[in-house]
Amino acid sequence: MTSPLSVEEIQRVAELGRLKLSSEEVSEYTGQLGAILEYVAKLQDIDTEDVEPMAHAVEVQNVFREDEPRESLPCDAALVNAPKTDGEFFLVPQILGGGGA
């Protein structure tokens, strides 16, 4: 079965999804996602011309509360699971001007 997806498309989607894939994964997903897309194409058989999309099972409305300050996580608790911090901030690689962290 030929996949409706090309290897290039899979690589593009992986880039959008911020996933580094091995070449084995790329070829595996090309076939598997292609098969899934062929299956879900059956939805095109249904006439949905005047149907309102349903994003939520219960009709959700905006929930408002008074704009009052509340207690939030203390800094050390918020940082406790971070891969890299300076004790006060999350540390990430340099974004401007290149270079690593």
């Binding site: 992986a14 996933l19 580094k20 971070a82 891969p83």
Partner: peptide
Amino acid sequence: DGVHYGHRSSEFDDMIDMYCASRGE
């Protein structure tokens, strides 16, 4: 994304590559 919690890859080139490698691993 390997910033606030969870796995961060030890090998990457830049910020975007850090996201991709961390998630891929």
